Simulated scan of single mutants.
Amino acid sequence: MSKKAIEPNNINGPILVILPRFIGDAINSLPAIELLNNLYPGKKVCLLIRPYMRDVLERAEGYDFELIEDARYHPNERIGLYRFAKTLKASQFSMAVLLRGSFIEAVLAKLAGIRYVVGYAQNGRKPLLSHPLKLNECHHYIFRYCRLVNDAHGKPLQSFSLPRLRANKAQLTHPEPHATAVYIGGKNKATRHYPVHLAANALTKIVAQTQTHLYLLGDSSEHHDAEELRQQLARKNIEATNLAGTTSLGELVDTISAMDAMITIDSGPMHIASACNIPTLALVGLGTSPFSLVAPLTTHCQVITSHSTSLNEAEIICAIEPEYLAERYLDLFK
């Protein structure tokens, strides 16, 4: 970056941070928010979020920010780009940090009259940025977000903390000594989905060796897959609770936080569990990004990586054997 570093004394108005669109990415952006809090103690920091993210980010622990729902994506009454930019302009933001790499977000910041706009010079938006950075695609996503804040200010900070969520207390429905959340996704997760029959075999072995109740998680589109898993377990006399499609995102955070352990695919729930410090097994086949770039950095999350040689992308995750998954689950508590 050739531009002169931003001096905090020159930032008189509030700061706008445009968050990524997915839950896991939004959670990974929290360390960058903390860096802004460190650089601007007491300064108003506003996070521009998709409306569905509110319940999750309201549970962020130890950060100082306000939430602004992006009216362009309101489920009931959306407004256009120019009208929304006019709304933001009235708040007189001095700086915007674009944690989402789309061109339209840079246009939004420009139309809102924000003087300092920090972001990666990608998707043709470099002319719209006051402080464009070159993206290093080898950097972890948390590092990428934090670097936008740190580099634009002349690299005054040396490290970042990991994301933190604080959940509300959730009342579990079963009395077993332990509770385990299970999220294998649905067919909508394509190559990340761990097949139901493999999950059923692994969970059968786990329940045979532990006193744990299984809580199956997912959204409404994944209820059928979770119910199929519950029924396969029931045929083996194993009771499981299917919560897929029955919880809000906030309740999902609360439920995961109440668990003793979690088994999950590469997903938003994986990042929620990590931010809540829940011992987690992450099943990784072929994802939407290289897993090394999005993997939770906490030691509470252990990764089971497929070593498949299959040329069928959907079968890569199938190389994670149920017996090995069960062994790794038991290792979580050693």
Results as ranks from 00 to 15, higher is better:
132 P>S: 12
128 L>A: 02
178 H>E: 09
133 L>S: 08
179 A>V: 06
167 A>R: 15
139 H>P: 05
179 A>D: 06
134 K>G: 00
163 P>Q: 10
141 Y>T: 15
145 Y>P: 04
175 P>T: 09
172 L>A: 03
135 L>R: 11
98 L>D: 03
175 P>K: 09
183 Y>F: 15
155 K>G: 08
101 G>E: 12
109 A>P: 01
94 S>I: 09
94 S>V: 11
170 A>K: 13
158 Q>E: 14
165 L>K: 02
155 K>D: 14
139 H>T: 06
98 L>Y: 01
180 T>H: 06
184 I>W: 00
95 M>K: 09
119 G>P: 09
162 L>Q: 10
172 L>P: 00
112 A>Q: 08
134 K>W: 00
124 G>K: 07
144 R>D: 08
165 L>T: 10
170 A>W: 11
100 R>M: 08
133 L>K: 08
185 G>K: 01
165 L>R: 05
178 H>I: 12
108 L>M: 14
99 L>R: 08
118 V>F: 08
124 G>S: 03
128 L>G: 08
122 Q>V: 15
163 P>V: 12
133 L>N: 06
112 A>R: 06
103 F>E: 11
186 G>V: 06
111 L>N: 04
170 A>Q: 12
165 L>H: 05
133 L>A: 06
122 Q>S: 13
140 H>V: 06
111 L>Q: 10
157 L>C: 11
101 G>Q: 07
146 C>Y: 12
141 Y>K: 15
104 I>H: 13
130 S>L: 07
100 R>S: 12
153 H>D: 14
160 F>W: 15
118 V>Y: 07
168 N>Y: 05
95 M>R: 09
164 R>F: 08
106 A>R: 02
157 L>K: 06
98 L>T: 07
114 I>C: 06
121 A>G: 11
153 H>W: 13
148 L>T: 12
103 F>H: 13
186 G>F: 06
181 A>G: 14
176 E>V: 03
111 L>C: 04
123 N>F: 01
106 A>N: 02
154 G>D: 00
120 Y>Q: 08
96 A>H: 04
135 L>H: 07
160 F>E: 11
186 G>W: 02
144 R>Q: 15
129 L>I: 07
156 P>D: 04
161 S>G: 13
158 Q>C: 12
154 G>F: 03
144 R>W: 05
107 V>I: 15
137 E>K: 11
154 G>Q: 04
142 I>F: 03
116 Y>G: 01
179 A>I: 07
